[in-house]
């Protein structure tokens, strides 16, 4: 069983560590480096509780070897915001009661960031699709969808300004030719 010296940059801090080839990224983060905000919920890559962002993309850290992440930039829930200075996504979850036991929540939020980066103004259906890889057993998802929508509004201040009305009345400017 080979051992490997790797470097992980987690939330901006560089860590050198030695891992067995088989060590999963999530175990390196939790057991070796103490980033226990990232949870393990299954072993079949389905629940998404272990989702972190690796080089800017949401990945399931239970389905990557630590050695594969050598040199990568990892971002975990610990880097989002503090209780006094929430990231909009955290704020969304708090305001919309998007969590109950909280176990799936870190992974849920890391995926939500991906969704919102791809699509700053997702529909409810798009959010549900985007969260396909994250299971929650407590909330029934409805308030999670609300939380992500809430965050989307917060993160797109410009869209909020006229977003509320433009839903009912799309592109009024280009429709000017049509008169009653």
């Amino acid at each position: 069983m080979t051992e490997h010296d790797i470097t992980l940059t987690v939330n901006g801090a560089e860590h050198d560590l030695t891992v067995e080839a088989r060590t999963l990224l999530v175990h390196a983060l939790r057991d070796e480096l103490g980033y226990t905000g990232t949870n393990v919920g299954c072993e079949s890559s389905l629940c998404g509780a272990c989702t972190v962002r690796m080089d800017g993309e949401a990945v399931k850290s239970c389905t990557a070897l630590a050695v594969q992440a050598d040199g990568a930039e990892i971002r975990t829930v610990e880097d989002l915001g503090t209780r006094h200075d929430f990231h909009p996504i955290q704020e969304g979850f708090q305001e919309e009661h998007g969590l109950q036991c909280g176990y799936c929540t870190p992974g849920m939020m890391m995926t939500a960031l991906d969704i919102l980066e791809e699509n700053p103004d997702p529909t409810r259906e798009e959010i549900r699709e985007g969260l396909e890889g994250n299971l929650c057993r407590c909330t029934g998802y409805q308030n999670i969808v609300n939380a992500v929508q809430n965050a989307a509004k917060e993160m797109q201040p410009a869209a909020v300004a006229d977003g509320g009305e433009s839903d009912d009345d799309p592109t009024p400017a280009t429709d000017g030719g049509e008169e009653l």
């Binding site: 993309e57 949401a58 389905t63 990557a64 890889g133």
Partner: peptide
């Protein structure tokens, strides 16, 4: 294919 995270990897 898969889900958001799977498609990323």
């Amino acid at each position: 294919v898969g889900d958001t995270q799977v498609r990323n990897r």
